[in-house]
């Protein structure tokens, strides 16, 4: 931590050298000039090679280039569809309870073989605050926060009332996130 901070000398009298100002100006301009020329070269190089990573500037040309979000990023919450085509959700209602925004509503039902499934599962995208508590509450890893951060808003709130079909995503598409949950939730520090 300490390495990231530099103690600033405030209220201390400037030395004569600093009070002369001219050389301090040169020093300051050298720093900005270094940034200027370095960014100039790297921007140009990335322009020629077409590789945005070479630009060396944090800014991203957003719609053309997509940011790579970190593993723990919480995007749109979505339901997992198991590989056999059935919902993983068992309609236990824990997410419904855990949700601080109260945006989930579930009606459960039973399949002929006795397993439970949600008959309807409604998630109000206009109300969700992307806290990820549903994901943490779920015992079946059936609802996960995806890395999907685009198209989260509509011009009409009614369009943001997602039903089960809109929320279900095949399991293999969520593999990265599911791995992450398993690593994070079941490692020691969570117990």
């Amino acid at each position: 931590m300490a390495a990231n901070y530099k103690k600033v000398n405030r209220g201390v009298k400037l030395t004569l050298w600093e009070r002369l100002y001219v050389m301090e100006v040169v020093r300051g301009v050298t720093i900005t000039a270094r940034h200027f020329f370095r960014n100039w070269v790297s921007t140009f190089r990335s322009y020629v090679s077409g590789n945005p990573a070479e630009r060396g500037i944090m800014t991203i040309y957003y719609p053309e280039e997509k940011p790579v979000v970190p593993e723990a990023y919480r995007g749109r919450p979505m339901l997992v569809r198991a590989m056999d085509g059935k919902e993983k959700c068992v309609a236990c209602g824990l997410c419904e309870v855990a949700c601080p925004a109260k945006c989930i509503s579930i009606v459960g039902a039973m399949r002929p073989d006795g397993t439970r499934y949600p008959e309807t599962y409604t998630l109000d995208g206009a109300v969700c605050i992307f806290c990820g508590l549903c994901e943490e509450a779920c015992p079946e890893e059936a609802i996960v926060m995806t890395h999907n951060y685009e198209g989260l808003v509509e011009y009409d709130r009614r369009l943001m009332l997602y039903d089960k079909e809109a929320l279900l995503v095949p399991e293999d598409k969520l593999k990265g996130r599911l791995d992450y949950i398993r690593r994070r939730m079941y490692n020691k520090c969570n117990y």
């Binding site: 000039a33 630009r55 800014t59 040309y61």
Partner: peptide, 13 residues
Amino acid sequence: KQSALMQDRIGAN
């Protein structure tokens, strides 16, 4: 552009 590059930004584009 120059002020942008000096401040590690991209600038008007």
